[in-house]
Simulated assay, not measured.
Amino acid sequence: MQHTPDSDSAHPAIRLLGLRETPLSLDEVYAAVGDDAAGGTAVFVGTVRDHDGGRSVAALDYSSHPSAQRELRRVAEEVAAEHPVRALAAVHRTGSLNVGDIAVIAAVSCHHRAEAFAACARLVEDIKHQVPVWKHQLFADGDEEWVGAHADRGR
């Protein structure tokens, strides 16, 4: 299965990128990285868990800096340039999410499985550490916490 590359991308392997306030589709992301030359596809699905640091999480809210889409593209282009990627896709939720909701999906297809695993792991870590998306956790006890809102994020 072949797909048209993301229209704003400088790298033809980048098939889908986005920040969305609507629920994410695993089927959409998986279809985006379909490639007949790929022997391995790695997919990561990040969900909202019911706890963090020993505390019960009730819900959370993701917000992003206006540069987040540009930074997501930069991260994707770096991963695609440094790994033998056939196709790459990544989408991240913004807005209010409940426990169990999908927060992020990243997928990479490569000729071989080890390459796909390595590229997908790098993509997920770089999104987490470099794309200015911030998590506001709401705990069951009424307390709240911001995660990821560091001075070094949000270029």
Rank of each mutant, 00 (worst) to 15 (best):
V43S: 01
V48R: 14
A32Y: 03
T47I: 03
F44Y: 14
V43L: 10
V33T: 14
L26K: 08
L16V: 07
S9Q: 03
Q2L: 07
P23L: 04
T41D: 04
P5F: 09
L16T: 03
E28W: 10
A32F: 07
G39Y: 09
H11V: 12
G34Q: 11
T22R: 15
P5I: 03
H11E: 10
A42D: 05
L16G: 05
Y30Q: 15
R49D: 04
L17G: 04
P23K: 02
L16N: 06
A38P: 07
D36Y: 05
R20D: 04
V48G: 08
F44L: 08
L19E: 07
A10I: 10
S25I: 01
R20Y: 03
D6L: 13
G39T: 12
T4D: 13
L24A: 05
H3C: 06
G39F: 08
Y30G: 10
L16K: 10
D8A: 13
D50E: 13
S25L: 02
L17P: 10
H11I: 06
T4A: 14
V29I: 11
L19P: 13
A32I: 01
L16C: 11
I14A: 06
E21T: 14
A32T: 00
Y30C: 13
A13P: 01
L26T: 10
A13V: 11
V45C: 05
D6K: 04
A38W: 06
D8H: 12
G18T: 07
E28M: 08
R49M: 02
T47W: 02
S25K: 00
V33W: 06
V33C: 08
L24H: 01
S25W: 00
D35V: 11
A31T: 09
V29T: 05
T4C: 10
A31H: 11
G46T: 11
Q2S: 12
D36W: 06
H3W: 05
S7Q: 14
V43D: 00
G46V: 04
D8F: 11
D8Y: 08
A32V: 02
A10M: 11
S7T: 13
D36G: 12
V45R: 03
V43E: 00
P23D: 00
D50S: 15
S25H: 00
T41A: 15
F44Q: 01
E21Y: 07
L17C: 06
E21K: 13
G40Q: 01
A31Q: 11
S25D: 02
D50V: 05
V29E: 03
R15T: 15
G46R: 09
T47Y: 00
G34I: 06
D36L: 09
H3F: 01
V43R: 00
A31Y: 01
I14V: 15
D6P: 00
A37E: 15
P23A: 07
Q2G: 10
I14P: 03
Q2Y: 10
D35H: 14
D8I: 12
A38Y: 04
G40C: 06
Q2C: 04
R49Q: 09
S25V: 02
S7K: 08
V43Y: 00
S9F: 04
G34M: 06
V33Y: 00
G40F: 03
L24C: 02
A31L: 10
Q2W: 11
V33E: 02
T4Y: 13
G34H: 05
D6Q: 11
D27H: 14
H3P: 05
V48L: 07
